[in-house]
Amino acid sequence: MGAHRPVSASRWDAWLRQCGLALALAICASGGIGLARAEPEAVRIATTAFTENGKPAIGGVAYRVQQEGWLAAQLQQRGVRLEWLPVTGDTGATMNEAFAAKRIDFAAYGDLPSVILNAGGVRTHVVVPMGRGADVFLLVAPGSSARSIRDLKGKRISVHRGRPWELGLRHLIEDSGLSVNDFTLVNMDIKPGAAALATGRVDALFVLSGDALEERGAGRIIWSSKGKPERKMRAELWGRRDFTRENLALAQLVATAWLRAQYWASQEDNRDAFILDGTRNGTPERVVRRAYDDPQVKWKDRFSPLYDGLVYRHYREVLAFARQQKLVRRELTVNELLEPRFVDAGLRELGLTNFWTQEKQP
């Protein structure tokens, strides 16, 4: 192979502007313009789903990415398809299996299953943090006399073990000066747990979407993580590490698409539209609005993609919890799970570097 001709500074700058920093890095990493790695035929993104008109459908930020069409168009220009994989049921296990089999490249799902996957040797990392977290709830039967978790000492609490919200229950127990041994934890998913609460087979239920259950009369909330940013459950956009490292330009497009969608959702003018999107799964609008009612979290910050102190603290706690519960054998560090490069580059590209407020990392 002949020697490369020198590239002038002006031509280099123009090329960077045209192709973008991420593409330039991908080409340089492969050894030069003439040795660029062939891109895959498709980018495959999994996300939690529900049934709409008899078919799986996605919601939240992922739905905005899908509806906007920017990512699909950008990939199409490169000859790459965008494939969505809606996942219902046990999303954590399903997405972990798909990552392990390399059937997906990205997934929007919760923290604890992702930690378990990485500790098992399938390496992924957070590509974009997705806001300030989702609320978790402790409910009792409507006729129960319990007013706090202390009133449930010696009782049965339903919680789906190994799912992201289990850590929230552990936090609540510890924050209340109690021990897990003070309760009988019954391993059930949300629907069976709600049924068990209704029939008296358990005394309390720890879940997501507690507002909807209370609205239906299926339980009464006696505690929630609203107003407690450190006690919320987190879900992020995760990427398969070998894919993102070998396809920097494509990974950057996916991250930028998520940032565009989170920026759109964070606009006060788009609040109603985003909330109405949340009713597509059959949840009444008043319940969706109630779910987002937390005076401690500004609407804009609900969609913050920043790798700030809150995110780092959360993942340190998740790692510690997974080790304590012997859910993992391999020691991981928080820096192995968090990859800020794509958010940093995307925010610069979109002119949003100072849009969200950075919380200091301790």
Rank of each mutant, 00 (worst) to 15 (best):
M1A: 12
P6A: 11
S10M: 02
W12D: 03
A14R: 06
W15L: 13
C19M: 15
L21A: 15
L23I: 02
I27G: 02
I27K: 07
C28N: 10
I33R: 15
G34V: 09
G34R: 10
L35N: 14
E41A: 08
R44F: 05
R44G: 09
R44V: 10
T48M: 11
A49F: 06
G54Q: 14
P56F: 10
A57R: 07
A57P: 01
Q66R: 10
L71K: 05
A73W: 02
R78G: 07
G79F: 04
D90Q: 07
N96I: 01
E97A: 15
F99C: 02
K102R: 13
V115S: 00
V115R: 00
I116K: 09
L117A: 07
A119R: 03
A119M: 10
G121M: 05
V140R: 06
I149Y: 02
I149M: 01
R150C: 00
K153S: 02
G154M: 01
L167T: 00
L169S: 02
H171C: 06
I173D: 02
I173L: 03
G177A: 14
L178H: 07
L185N: 08
K191W: 05
A196K: 08
G210E: 14
D211S: 13
A212D: 06
A212M: 03
G217L: 06
A218F: 14
G219V: 06
R220P: 13
I221Q: 15
I222K: 01
P229F: 05
R231N: 00
K232P: 00
R234Q: 15
R234M: 14
E236C: 09
G239N: 12
G239M: 12
T244V: 15
T244C: 13
N247K: 06
A251S: 14
T256N: 08
A261G: 09
Q262L: 07
A265P: 05
S266Y: 15
D269L: 12
N270G: 09
D272A: 11
L276N: 07
D277N: 03
T279R: 08
T279M: 10
T283Y: 04
P284M: 11
P284N: 13
V287C: 10
V288E: 07
R289C: 06
D293W: 14
Q296F: 13
D301F: 12
G309N: 05
V318F: 00
Q325R: 13
T333N: 02
G346C: 03
L347G: 00
L347A: 00
W356I: 12
K360L: 04
Q361G: 07
P362V: 07
